[in-house]
Design a protein around this nucleic acid. Sequence first.
DNA 1: CGGCATCCTCTTTGATACTG
DNA 2: CAGTATCAAAGAGGATGCCG
Lengths: 216, 216
Amino acid sequence: MRTYDQFCAAARALDVVGDRWTLLIVRELLIRDGARYTDLQYGLPGIATNLLANRLRELEEHGIVTREAAPPPVATTLFRLTPRGEALKPVLMALGEWGGPLLETASGEFRSHWLVLPLERRLQDHRPEAPPVTIELHTGDQPLLIETDHGRVHVRPGTVATPDATLRGSPPLILGVLGGDLDLTAACAQGLDFEGDPDAVRRVARPAVAESQTAE
Amino acid sequence: MRTYDQFCAAARALDVVGDRWTLLIVRELLIRDGARYTDLQYGLPGIATNLLANRLRELEEHGIVTREAAPPPVATTLFRLTPRGEALKPVLMALGEWGGPLLETASGEFRSHWLVLPLERRLQDHRPEAPPVTIELHTGDQPLLIETDHGRVHVRPGTVATPDATLRGSPPLILGVLGGDLDLTAACAQGLDFEGDPDAVRRVARPAVAESQTAE
DNA sequence: CGGCATCCTCTTTGATACTG
DNA sequence: CAGTATCAAAGAGGATGCCG
């Protein structure tokens, strides 16, 4: 990117991460630190491969990403964020916060791991002393697993033998229920497929704000 | 901008404000809400005039900016942020926070009003009950005025007849002193021109973190 | 003067094919 | 798997002109 060449911290930041696709590459690496080139391509539908290669090189030059060549047996390259790269998380979160209202419709491409950051932001274990619970989400390309961990809640791709609850449905329904914008029964009426213990969901979901009845 | 077309809040946000110059236009309007076209051009050195016009139209279409035609006597147009536009402030602040370390050198264009947001973020009135103080900053194209107001601190372009203190010097020096990264005497040794009451500066500046001796 | 629109050039992006 | 090479299309930059 042509530099703005301004003595302004925000402009300097945009000089580095303001290029098209750049912040979305950082998003991918925030969700799954240690990603292969093809993982990134999969998580960034539509990106041209030369652009991905260029951006990764620029991010490396700016000290945001490191390239880690795994030893010969596996022979693959892993891309990771440096601490400086991880420091971009507040930027992505602020953008996500602002962009939330634009998500009314579930159009376009979707990868279920994109829910990891927004869900971790919304979820909280309201009964940290109780035994841990696990919830499986099925919405998109691969299942997600929610796990409580001493008050914190972790979200990652994965499954477990006997989850306490399982949710299947469109991303807005899942996000609505867990984000506290949609009642569980209302979501089921709108097509959510729910199995297991409703209390497991209530335990981690953000409390409802009031009368809201529509998916985010 | 070609849309990313992803069901991801951050990607949706970038669909709207990810274009080149867009967030810097928002920055200008966050600093001085109610700006004329030429004010924006002045605050965005290097922008092509057609680009500014296009971006303003897009921002208007997205409900981020409103255009207010002043009545015939003055015959000028004022651009303002909507609440939705003001909601972008956390995004700009997060970018600024991350970009701060890139400001080591005072190269490139500079407009003193660009200091308003970073300064308001750093400053705090540590003695709210004491009578208000004013500090003038001279560093760039126009003087800035810092005013305490019942615990809050406001920064705006302007001057006052008898400020409690006056700082003249390069932007990094000013930012270093007020941000708590640079001792006042050290800054004077590096070329800061200081007049008035040092306590006025200490009252609003962010406390030093420890041993730091270099400008940010 | 303030607020653009037009025209032209140059750079960046996108799409696809191909390679060690 | 992790890219490079190539080429067409879109966008940005810069100059200038227009109109109330």
